[in-house]
Design a protein around this nucleic acid. Structure first.
Lengths: 225, 225
DNA sequence: CCAGAACCGTACCGTACGGTACGGCATGGA
DNA sequence: TCCATGCCGTACCGTACGGTACGGTTCTGG
């Protein structure tokens, strides 16, 4: 499960990418009530071709998830010149990017089918989504956190714990509420505001320039109990 | 959507509760690949009876969600004598209870079907789960936070924001990972440890006894930008 | 111009499942 | 004793959908 993000995969032809985009569109519109016939109709291809290219329904869904994942790669930071402002900006950008992703209709639709599949045990869509979502962003953010620590800007013992805390401060209840059908503010300004808040709170917890009141970082107890 | 938790509902007979428990068991075992025939077999009743009692499949699922929700009510705190230790203990207990809930196989199964339903637009299972999960705990925790503020132990402007921050510190990536099929440590000790960490971090952000370095609470910017 | 491959559109098959009908049995009240 | 009610078990129906088959059309290479 804790595998690296899989490669963008298999280099589909343009025609095949069109089909996968059709699947994404249908997924967003109709939820997981997706039928092979509907895909064929939408993509103007035959069902026989779908089965030839993707094997079966699960293969089509898997390919769709990978296809979508292969084009949301983003982020990165300038490791060379990392002062407090640059670190804060990078973290804030990560936070905003992540919020934009989990708020997108595509991500919501994909996560819904992956969650449903994970429940029925068939295939491993859940693992793929996790690898390309939560674990991908973790893999990209942790080097930044560690660079910030090496630059004396952050203080934490365990990178994973620090990252997961930031993750929680960013997402809070947003993803589960969206998955369950709640409506939330997903405007660009709203996202920017939340990203700024999460970053501010993260610095309050892990910023080295303003050492926590209790000795040690807040992720470890200052005293027993 | 932002409705109050619905009442435990309708007072089913014992026999009917047995049926709903059978649904829960099947949901946990087989995911949402739940068929009416399987329920009838498991509960040793006829399909006709199921339809008579619950209307249709969605009605059965809705009743099941309400039934499960009606018996996870818990929590509460002693408002009278609220010192720092009592507040911390209450928050930690809330956090541990919530982690135990979202880590339970029943909650995972129920959230999975609700997410799937929210995707297909049919029925409002998502709203029900949300009302009895996220919003129910919010409704129970916010009075505690405000009591803590009135007692001079916490400092925040907006109760909702403070609660959502705590929510994020507690859950982090746990719920989405579990829903997507990842395996996590859900032991009692692990939960207790995470609850303690979340509470410690929440106090670091919102504790009044140790004012934040920047003026104001970390949920509002100290200066523009 | 021809052969073959790729693919579209549609018809078709089998099965799973939601929902209904019905016969049989038990209980309880008159 | 008899009828009514409520429920079990099972058979049944209609439909939706995954997957396959096949005829017809377009494209490509020779």
């Amino acid at each position: 499960m804790t595998q690296a993000a899989s490669e963008g995969g298999k280099e589909w032809t343009e025609r095949q990418k069109d089909v996968l985009d059709a699947v994404l569109a249908l997924l967003v519109e109709d939820g997981d009530r997706l039928t092979m016939a509907a895909v064929a109709r939408r993509a103007k291809c035959s069902k026989e071709t779908l089965y030839k290219w993707f094997g079966d329904r699960d293969g089509l869904l898997t390919a769709t998830v990978r296809w979508q994942a292969s084009r949301v790669r983003a982020g990165g930071f300038d490791r060379a010149r990392l002062d407090a402002a640059a670190l804060r900006e990078s973290l804030e950008r990560f936070a905003a990017d992540w919020l934009a992703v989990i708020s997108s209709r595509t991500s919501i639709a994909l996560n819904r089918v992956a969650v449903a599949h994970a429940g029925s045990g068939r295939s491993n869509l859940g693992a793929i989504v996790l690898a390309n979502g939560r674990f991908a962003i973790g893999g990209r953010m942790k080097p930044l956190l560690e660079a910030g620590r090496e630059a004396g800007l952050l203080a934490f013992d365990d990178t994973e714990t620090a990252f997961r805390t930031f993750f929680g401060l960013i997402g809070r209840d947003v993803q589960i509420r969206l998955l369950l059908g709640d409506r939330l503010d997903t405007s660009e300004e709203g996202i920017a505001r939340e990203a700024a808040r999460a970053t501010r709170q993260f610095f309050a917890l892990y910023g080295a320039s303003q050492p926590p009141a209790q000795a040690g970082s807040p992720e470890t107890p200052a005293s027993a109990g």
